[in-house]
């Protein structure tokens, strides 16, 4: 296809991506260097008869509004926002490292800084949910592969539901069930004989709930892909393995799993990308007191009731984008090498 025809065909799509994905990234980068204007403060002298004169400082709302309107970006702040307490918190980290009582103290104090708190949960969620969901999906695929064909359709139908359903809605459904007045929460209370047990009250239990939700939501994707892969496992190889005396487990270990390996890489890549942006479950489970994620902190900055903290949200966004690039880099490097070898 000649260049001209190619660009004519791809132009609408490319234009949409450049305008609404590439340009916003530039916009985020610019915004992260600015910080919103401080309130304009004026000194007013009030003189009352007999009491003398007092000067007081007042916020000049009109002037503040005017200034914000004239320069919506705010004032230039350089990398200040990146380093402040709500982001990388370099000063605080330095202070913690200089004066602390052992490793546990360092960890707990760093965990109290908002950015590291969000990062800790985001990374835990990404790297716990992805492998466990893939493992569960693989087991389901093996199980479904063995049931009579007549039941496969309905089983696949129900298996797709946790993945297809809107993430916020799925999270809400599980949240209601696991609340102390819901069926799961009440059952847990009576099983553990602890009438005050609430999944929301402790940080550990909240994390576990969110991770369980993540596995429930992500397993069907692995299941469907692995199940399709199982249909293409070569029978000759399986049979020769049987003749060589491989038992059931060895056949799975040495024939089926190597056959599914390329699929597993693909699933892992997609799941890592999706889990890194974990956001809706935190809103759905109202878990922000005990678990926040990078996406949630951006959302929280933007949703501010009084001021929308564009600068702060943009700085977190930039740090998130750096995280995404680090996460993707092994894939990108490998693809680049393979492409050059061709």
């Amino acid at each position: 296809m000649p260049h001209k025809a190619f660009f004519a065909f791809i132009m609408p799509s490319l234009l949409a991506m450049l305008l609404f994905i590439a340009l916003p990234i530039v916009s985020v980068a610019v915004q992260s260097l600015y910080v919103q204007h401080e309130r304009v403060v004026t000194e007013v002298e009030t003189c009352a008869p007999f009491a003398g004169c007092t000067t007081e400082t007042r916020v000049d709302a009109e002037a503040t509004e005017k200034l914000r309107h004239a320069e919506p970006l705010g004032r230039f702040n350089g990398f200040g926002t990146y380093l402040d307490r709500n982001h990388l918190a370099t000063a605080e980290i330095g202070a913690i490292l200089a004066d602390n009582a052992g490793f546990a103290d360092i960890a707990s104090r760093i965990y109290n800084l908002p950015f590291y708190r969000a990062l800790a949960f985001t990374l835990t969620y990404t790297f716990v949910v992805t492998p466990l969901a893939m493992l569960l999906g693989f087991c389901i695929a093996l199980g479904v592969n063995a049931i009579p064909p007549f039941y496969k359709g309905p089983v696949i139908f129900f298996s797709l539901l946790p993945m297809i359903v809107t993430p916020l809605v799925g999270a809400l459904i599980l949240y209601w069930m696991s609340s102390p007045q819901g069926i799961l929460g009440a059952t847990l209370q009576s099983l553990l004989n602890d009438p005050t047990l609430s999944l929301k009250s402790s940080a550990v239990l909240t994390w576990v709930t969110l991770l369980v939700y993540g596995i429930w939501h992500n397993a069907p994707f692995s299941f469907v892909v692995f199940y399709a892969g199982l249909q293409t496992v070569p029978h000759d190889t399986l049979e020769s393995a049987m003749i060589d005396g491989a038992n059931r487990w060895e056949r799975i270990r040495f024939v089926v799993i190597p056959h599914l390996m390329p699929l597993a890489t693909f699933v892992a890549l997609v799941q890592l990308m999706d889990n890194f942006r974990v956001f809706e479950p935190i809103v759905g489970f109202s878990a922000e007191a005990n678990a926040t994620s990078l996406s949630w902190s951006i959302f929280n900055d933007l949703r501010g009731q009084v001021d929308q903290l564009f600068g702060s949200a943009a700085a977190t966004s930039m740090l998130t984008i750096v995280g995404v690039v680090i996460l993707l880099s092994p894939v990108l490097v490998r693809t680049w090498r393979e492409f050059n070898r061709r």
Binding site: I21, P24, Q31, F276, F279, S295, I298, L302, S317, T320
Partner: peptide, 8 residues
């Protein structure tokens, strides 16, 4: 992540 684009 979609929310980073939204902040842009």
């Amino acid at each position: 992540p979609h929310i980073t684009l939204v902040s842009g």
